[in-house]
């Protein structure tokens, strides 16, 4: 089902655009990069279910590899292949399965360039998607990006619009280092204008102001952008103007963009679906307290999932993640 993406400004980028969903944009990015560079290969389970059908048609089975259910090792196979001349995209599908691949990502991919004194490069992309609010229950609904933020040697992106996921996926594939791409399934069906230029990239490490405002800065991570935009729209009528920033890249974070915004608003809220302890919000709040304390008129607030596992029951899951109303409430508290 296609859903109109009303959470984003119309892209102001010049040049030809085409409407597509966030999900289609991920596939398109891979398609273009596989055309551009024959070293790019895709590895994942049931690739046709996860959008790879089109890629198999275009590139055949020597470029698109269907994996056995062996995340712990096929991730390492990808890393080994990256060291030896390929540029793999490893599709781990549901983000909760990345725990099985953790050892290879953390102990090998993130460390080997450093530990070999720069003798080897590991140009690899790990792609996975985060479910929430669909009663997937705790073993399919994790958002494990904070875990990986704590690991040196990894770059992590989690953009929120079709144009951004395309541009960042392409940057990730062209990057010479391991990059984790966390897609949010709540964004998959959102449509947006996407530049057709195959060299249109979004740089890793650059945030985007998704909406300009005066009174409060809300940094929204991944799927949390949807209720955040709803909250911002809702508050217009009350004359409250909210600035919404999407970091797009979670590591390295674009602290400058956040500082510039709070210089104007003096108020900061971070909204995300990750669990509360040691998440992106914690990191942003810590850095802002260290480096921009004087810019803040009010305490920093964080909205997130609680330190509890994602419940199956819709009755418990309903308010588990930040909602429009909880974000509106937080904004009011700061004004």
């Amino acid at each position: 089902m296609d859903v109109k993406d009303d959470t984003h400004r119309d892209a102001a980028t010049p040049g030809p655009h085409i409407q597509m969903t966030y999900f289609e944009a991920i596939v398109q990015a891979q398609l273009e990069e596989m055309h551009r560079d024959e070293r790019v290969v895709l590895m994942g389970e049931d690739v046709s279910v996860h959008g790879g059908g089109k890629l198999i048609e275009c590139f055949g089975k020597n470029r698109v590899w269907n994996m056995p259910i062996s995340e712990g090792s096929f991730t390492g196979v990808g890393i080994g292949a990256a060291i030896n001349g390929l540029r793999p995209i490893v599709d781990i599908s549901t983000a909760s399965f990345i725990y099985l691949a953790c050892d290879q990502i953390v102990n090998q991919a993130s460390k080997l360039r450093y530990m070999t004194g720069g003798q080897i490069d590991i140009p690899i992309v790990f792609r996975c998607c985060m479910f929430s609010t669909g009663s997937e229950a705790a073993q399919h609904a994790d958002r494990p990006y904070p875990l990986f933020m704590n690991v040196p040697g990894l770059k992590i992106v989690s953009p929120t619009s079709a144009a951004d996921i395309k541009g960042l996926m392409k940057s990730a594939i062209r990057d010479g280092d391991p990059v984790l791409v966390f897609e949010d399934t709540r964004l998959w069906p959102l449509k947006g204008d996407v530049p057709t230029d195959p060299d249109h990239l979004i740089p890793i490490g650059k945030a985007d102001v998704k909406r300009e405002g005066e009174h409060v800065t809300v940094v929204a991570i991944a799927g949390a952008i949807r209720p955040t935009m709803e909250a911002a729209n809702y508050l217009i009528e009350e004359g409250i103007s909210v600035e919404v920033i999407d970091p797009r890249t979670l590591k390295p974070l674009d602290y400058e963009a956040i500082k510039m915004s709070i210089e104007k608003t003096g108020r900061l809220i971070i909204v995300e679906n990750g669990h509360r302890i040691c998440n992106v919000g914690s990191e942003i709040a810590a850095v802002m307290a260290e480096e921009s304390f004087d810019l803040l008129k009010r305490p920093i607030l964080r909205l997130s999932a609680p330190d509890i596992h994602v419940p199956f029951s819709p009755a418990l899951e309903k308010d588990f993640f930040p909602t429009r109303d909880s974000i509106v409430g937080a904004i009011r508290r700061l004004l």
Partner: peptide, 11 residues
């Protein structure tokens, strides 16, 4: 529910 609604169909 057998898992008090915390698990669901798969669990």
């Amino acid at each position: 529910g057998v898992c008090k609604g915390r698990g669901g169909s798969m669990h």
